[in-house]
Design a protein around this nucleic acid. Structure first.
Lengths: 150, 150
DNA sequence: CTTGATCATGAAATTCATTTTCATGATAGC
DNA sequence: GCTATCATGAAAATGAATTTCATGATCAAG
């Protein structure tokens, strides 16, 4: 973790940037907390330890990590951008519409079929996004009570 | 087409709404033009025939069609919401990062594997979104000339 | 066909996430 | 320590989408 932070900072140095307290705090907090954080959530967490850090710096730091390739931007249609670490390999998402919990998965058969479909359409695939929306087990069981249909 | 418009309007009537020139113009234009239109694009098209119609009405009309189940909102990470007709059945997207052309596809094997993965995670899937980003054949061949890497 | 209640409209104002501006503070390298 | 350059936070700006509000259109009932 400390090693990771140093690696990121040295890469910032190498690309013409400088070290800074606020930035280190944001980066460390990001890698410390779970995945799929929004800027607002991350700002709140950072402010606990470093109250002076504003959300603008968090925005800027996440864009910096994006440029350096350490994070991905993800968007589950909530109107906010979320960030996930790019350290782990590619994966897809199961998003619970009730509690918001995001589970990651990867299925090589799906990946292969995607390539196949793309090439069938003479399309060169670079990236993709597969998000499945529904209810996790916990929220699904809580919904057992039938609702008035619309 | 005319039948579709009448069907939509009668459903609006049934749900307590009223008929209006502007609204008909927006709805007709939406079904007339291709898929995956943004509000800005649609407004521009509507204004050609009905210059008085403002974008607010287009926004409102698309939300209305969404409530009535005639359209889906899609988002390809451009910062704008696009609308597609919900008349055709579910499909996924191949999005060209160069020219923006969107090709639809459906692969039942991928659909099945998605259900399988979801259930393996005790997750009840409701909807999903699979967008593959890359280059269509035309844009890919134009990119053959190597570029300066960044 | 007139009336009256209700819905729809456009312009302007508002919201909200994100980005930019700008004056000031911190850092690296000499 | 100096100095050029980068980073910062507050406030302003942006841009998509929504709401407000006064006015116009539409429908159903007389």
């Amino acid at each position: 973790m400390q090693l990771l932070l140093e690696k990121v900072e040295s890469q910032i140095l190498a690309s013409g940037g400088k070290r800074s307290r606020s930035r280190s705090a944001v980066i460390a907090q990001f890698f410390r907390c779970g995945r799929h954080v929004s800027v607002e959530e991350l700002t709140r967490l950072v402010k606990k330890r470093s109250p002076a850090v504003g959300s603008v710096t968090v925005y800027r730091t996440m864009k910096l990590l994006l440029r350096l390739g350490y994070v991905n931007e993800v968007d589950f249609g909530e109107g906010v951008t979320r960030y996930e670490s790019n350290m782990s390999s590619h994966h897809d998402h199961l998003v619970c519409k009730s509690c918001g919990v995001v589970t990651e998965f990867i299925d090589s058969r799906i990946e292969e079929l995607q390539s196949e479909v793309a090439h069938k359409h003479e399309f060169r695939p670079l990236t993709h996004r597969l998000d499945i929306y529904g209810y996790c087990r916990k929220c699904d069981s809580e919904r057992d009570v039938p609702e008035m249909s619309v």
